[in-house]
Write a protein that binds this DNA or RNA. Sequence first.
DNA 1: TATTGTTATACTCTATAACTATA
DNA 2: TATAGTTATAGAGTATAACAATA
Lengths: 147, 147
Amino acid sequence: MTEPAPPPTAAPTPVELMDQLAWAAAAYYRHFAAMAAERGLTLMQGKTLSLLREPKPMRTLAELLACDASNVTGIIDRLQARGLVRREVDPADRRIKNVLLTEEGEETVRRIRAEMMSGLTGLEHLGEAERRTLRQLLSEVFPAPAG
Amino acid sequence: MTEPAPPPTAAPTPVELMDQLAWAAAAYYRHFAAMAAERGLTLMQGKTLSLLREPKPMRTLAELLACDASNVTGIIDRLQARGLVRREVDPADRRIKNVLLTEEGEETVRRIRAEMMSGLTGLEHLGEAERRTLRQLLSEVFPAPAG
DNA sequence: TATTGTTATACTCTATAACTATA
DNA sequence: TATAGTTATAGAGTATAACAATA
């Protein structure tokens, strides 16, 4: 009689997986902050630009950035001073100011996204089946609009 | 003749997967920051405490927090003023100050970690095979010491 | 000389509260 | 009255440069 073969890899505990998620989240933002810093942008400025693929009201940005609305004023002020975004009063409700990317802002977002992709080489190397699986598992752990 | 059945789920592109990783990382930190805030701690203070399961020199903390060493002085000052950490001069190299959790600091870390786990309910519900797969895929995308 | 940690400085991010304009 | 955005304020995080103590 032979010993039963051990499983090819041990299953991590949920706690071990949480620690790995912490690492992955930190690694993602370390990379993102570095890409933003190459353009003289802070992490929050980079995140804000990335949220503006479609124009959004200040209030919506505050919710998406998970910060108080008063902070968004300063963040948008600084991005606007650098010519990366502009404000437009909403014609339907003149209390609302929609924030839009300028041409330079759009170019900046494009470059940051491209460099993020080329930095996350692991992503490029995943096969289709692996990408499907990762998407499914992430959506189970972080149920969300995912877009 | 019947149409060939489409695959049960379409494979996301690497770019779509990057966006989902961005969402997951944001969701992780939103949750972590909320757990820290319940104890009157900022995100950085919570991250710093979580790094101190083993004592670490100031310099090492700066590397792990991905910030300049001068910032760590202030972060540790504030945690020390609240009785959550203490500094000890390294006997082998008196330039080095090792930072240790106090009893209250350890209790705080325990509680934050426990609440993180109970909040990430998706993690608890993954089966062993799924946990193995997620660990493997994460380590491919974010190759790292993972601990 | 090189390294560790601190201080000083200036800027950014952060929440709270009070305010204006609009609905 | 309620909501969107701003301003004022104080505290926290950030990088840079200069410094003291130690190696």
